[in-house]
Nucleic acid binder design. Structure first.
Length: 239
DNA sequence: AAACCTTGCAACCGCAGGCGC
DNA sequence: AGCGCCTGCGGTTGCAAGGTT
């Protein structure tokens, strides 16, 4: 059996320099010409498509490279509610941001939060897919789109309602809804004892180390940062 | 200390639509 | 009309650095 691995060739500083030079030189975006000039003048082999993508997603001088601000995140989330996965449409409303940056933000946020949420849960409690259709459920949406600074132990205390799980199962059964399958599914060899242990260890860790963060009034205390959720998050007491 | 895991994001791919010939 | 080329779009996957075990 022969496996073909996709090799990614990162752009070097020199390549970037030459590409920028040529792109600005030609004024317009004649990628075919730019690509062939790269080869002729600098012996750099990049297809027209690679050149255009590099420019669009990285070199374009009007792009910001800083982290998304809270304001930008709020805007993205509400635009996503309106337009769905139309990343380039959303990018039109966010000056200095490319559709790739926005798409990456959503995918990595969802992936990160799925991991945190699934940590130490039984198979039946886990959320396994990052179907964007799932975001239409308010509870699941608040979990999957929570900000970076929401700690793992917050996620562990969340209990999804039966309605949310019912919705999740309904979506999961209809394969047409799946936009992408989480990579993590492939490495997710579930082991109930390990999961229990993980959970116990973590509870112990919380008790020993960050007790002061979690006063008796857990229900009040556990809140996502105000800026992330579209709507207020309701926590459900776990037993 | 080294192997393994997680994370953020850059880059690749297939597809579809526009356009010229 | 229809073919081929080009580009933009959105889903997916690889890379590298930092973190954890």
């Amino acid at each position: 059996m022969v496996y073909l691995l996709k090799k990614i060739k990162l752009w070097t500083k020199e390549e970037d320099l030459m590409l920028r030079d040529l792109t600005e030189g030609f004024g317009g975006r004649n990628w075919k010409k730019i690509s062939s000039s790269l080869k002729i003048f600098y012996n750099i082999t990049r297809t027209p498509k690679q050149c255009s993508e590099r420019w669009k997603n990285y070199l374009n001088g009007s792009l910001k490279r800083s982290e998304f601000s809270h304001m930008e995140i709020e805007k993205m989330l509400s635009l996503h509610m309106e337009y769905g996965n139309k990343w380039s449409k959303i990018a039109n409303f966010l000056p200095g941001r490319s559709s790739n940056q926005i798409k990456n933000y959503f995918h990595s946020t969802i992936r990160r939060n799925l991991r945190k949420f699934n940590f130490g849960r039984s198979a039946s409690e886990k959320l396994n897919y990052s179907s964007f259709k799932l975001l239409e459920n308010k509870e699941i949406r608040n979990i999957l789109l929570a900000g970076k600074d929401v700690k793992k132990h917050f996620f562990m205390k969340i209990k999804l309602s039966d309605e949310a799980y019912e919705y999740y199962r309904k979506i999961s059964q209809n394969s047409d809804y799946f936009i992408c399958k989480s990579r993590d599914d492939y490495i997710d060899n579930y082991d109930i004892n390990l999961a229990k242990k993980e959970r116990e260890n973590y509870e112990l860790y919380i008790q020993n180390n960050i007790k002061e963060e979690l006063n008796e009034n857990l229900y009040e205390e556990l809140k996502f940062p105000e800026f992330i959720p579209q709507t207020e998050f309701e926590f459900f007491k776990s037993n």
